[in-house]
């Protein structure tokens, strides 16, 4: 079985929640990591690989050149190789442009399963998989919290507004997984050492046959017009617990007549 996992490098979310007013894009300076949500997809991929001899896990991403470094974390966990689509012209891509390019990269791999994470802290769309699945004309199941793969069929449970659905789909298919699906493994020292030597390929848009006007800002169908400050939310008090946190909460509740 060949399993592709779509992963993204993101700004370390805890450090960084700012937009650069000049470009109207997220300020991408600072530390960068593999999207923590995507580690659950990598974990699922490795489990699928372990359950079927001769399987392969390939990480696929679109992003700046240095993203390979973050992708090594997935290689260290146990993925076999990494493919990064990287091109100046791809920067500023929206859903239309990103899904077009990723689908091209995935079609080149012809995987049996394409896995996605839940969401990205910077994109937050939690929907890219659907656009990719439609471009590849594959069945999809999203936001999976429990999964079983047997005899070329995926059976998955996922939460909707009304409880849990169980959905079945044949391979090949596109799946996105919830962060509750599993606990991503820690990379072993051996895994970390070995990751650098695993195949890591970078592809340009022309390698994929993607025309420049289909990606980046030129290929995008949405724009950011203006940025501003949201309406103020009133006063927020935040204190450190120095051992008296519980007492301070009680005092606050008493002041508000809530106990």
């Amino acid at each position: 079985m060949k399993i592709a996992v779509c992963v993204k490098e993101v700004p370390d979310a805890a450090l960084n929640r700012r937009i650069d007013p000049a470009t109207k894009q997220l300020d991408r300076s600072g530390d960068r990591v593999l999207n923590p949500y995507d580690l659950h997809a990598v974990e699922q991929a490795i489990r699928m690989k372990e359950s079927e001899a001769g399987s392969e896990v390939v990480l696929v991403s679109m992003g700046p050149n240095r993203a390979l470094e973050s992708m090594r974390k997935g290689l260290a966990m146990g993925a076999d190789r990494a493919v990064l689509v990287t091109d100046e012209a791809a920067s500023g891509s929206d859903l239309v442009a990103t899904s077009h390019t990723l689908a091209k990269a995935l079609e080149r791999e012809q995987p049996d399963v394409v896995l996605f994470g839940y969401q990205t802290p910077d994109g937050n769309g939690a929907c890219l998989w659907a656009a990719v699945a439609e471009r590849m004309r594959l069945p999809m199941v999203s936001q999976i919290a429990e999964i079983e793969v047997a005899d070329g069929t995926v059976t998955a449970k996922r939460q909707t507004e009304f409880g849990y659905d169980t959905i079945r789909a044949p391979l090949p298919c596109v799946l996105s997984v919830s962060d509750a699906l599993n606990e991503p493994r820690f990379a072993s020292l051996k895994g970390i050492m070995g990751a650098k030597k695993k195949p890591q390929e970078t592809l340009s848009l022309s390698d994929l046959g993607v025309e420049a006007d289909r990606v980046g800002r030129a290929g995008s169908r949405t724009t950011v017009r203006t940025l501003g400050d949201p309406p103020s939310r009133g006063e927020n008090v935040k204190i450190e617990d120095d051992g008296s946190g519980a007492e301070k909460i009680l005092q606050f509740l008493i002041e508000r007549k809530l106990v």
Partner: peptide
């Protein structure tokens, strides 16, 4: 999002 992929149409969420 699937419709966006099929029609190459912009989606804001």
């Amino acid at each position: 999002a699937g419709l966006s992929g099929r029609l190459d149409a912009g989606l804001n969420w």
